[in-house]
Amino acid sequence: MTAVIELDRVSKDFVVMRKKGRLRRERMTVAAVDDISLRIDTGELVGYIGPNGAGKSTTIKMLTGILVPSSGTVRVVGLDPQRRRVELASRIGVVFGQRTQLWWDLPLIDSFDLLRHVYRVPADRHRANLRRFVDLLELEPFLHSPVRQLSLGQRMRGDLCAALLHDPAILYLDEPTIGLDVVSKARVREFLAQVNRDEGVTILLTTHDLSDVERLCSRLVVIDHGHVIHDGTVAEIKTMFGDTRTVVVDLEEAGPSLVVPGAEVVEVDGPRQWLRFRRSEVTAAEVIAAVVGQARVRDLSIEEPDIEDVVTRIYTSG
């Protein structure tokens, strides 16, 4: 595997002025990204998550050459992004969920045609790419409608197509599913998986929608306060931070909270009770046995933590 993105001990400091007294201001240095090392190989689909202000966008801006790191080195497809920004531009595609590169007043197809000239894509190559993406993203019905008339989901699909027409090796996506309904989200995810699998495009995805990550990404990088706090598979992060399980029991009749060694009743709703325990301390079988010994149980189930809970715990514990 060859690395397409390499960050080696990268930091980015911003200088902010803080008011101090009536007129005096103090210069303060804030590290948005603090000593991050990261290597992403060709064809990976990586989820890059973290709370607001964690340093995600700063990282992406350094990867496109718009920001220069304060220290450390960045290499994207072997290039120094800031020095070779124009050369790099034709190797990457970028989609911001909240921005668009499409021409608002003109038919969608017009923006696509212009991109052929922006990136100097040969005409036949452009035609073939356009046909493929129009099919995959089902753009045909509104290809000739002005962009301002499109729904958010349609516009996002248009932006995805626009970002890929010049055959980029890497696609950066900043919250591509923000504001989309369930059906549109599913369609965007399906498309991204397909592009990654069939075209070998390396994808770096930042999102706050963790179901995006769970459905799509083989690898998850979590950053907070400028540090990488996890880098591994989704399953790994769940076992690492998601040690807890919850047994949900429906009793024959409502009663006081059960007392089970190693488990804690976290919620009671009539005859239903939720008991949380750590797998490392007690087994599910032991918890269930203790419950059955105290009360008559009508039904029970075991809940695994979803990634949402896991990440909430990581953010709040950090």
Partner: peptide
Amino acid sequence: SGDVVTDLYRPV
């Protein structure tokens, strides 16, 4: 609005 960022990504 900050949209200019997308203009700067392009080789134009």
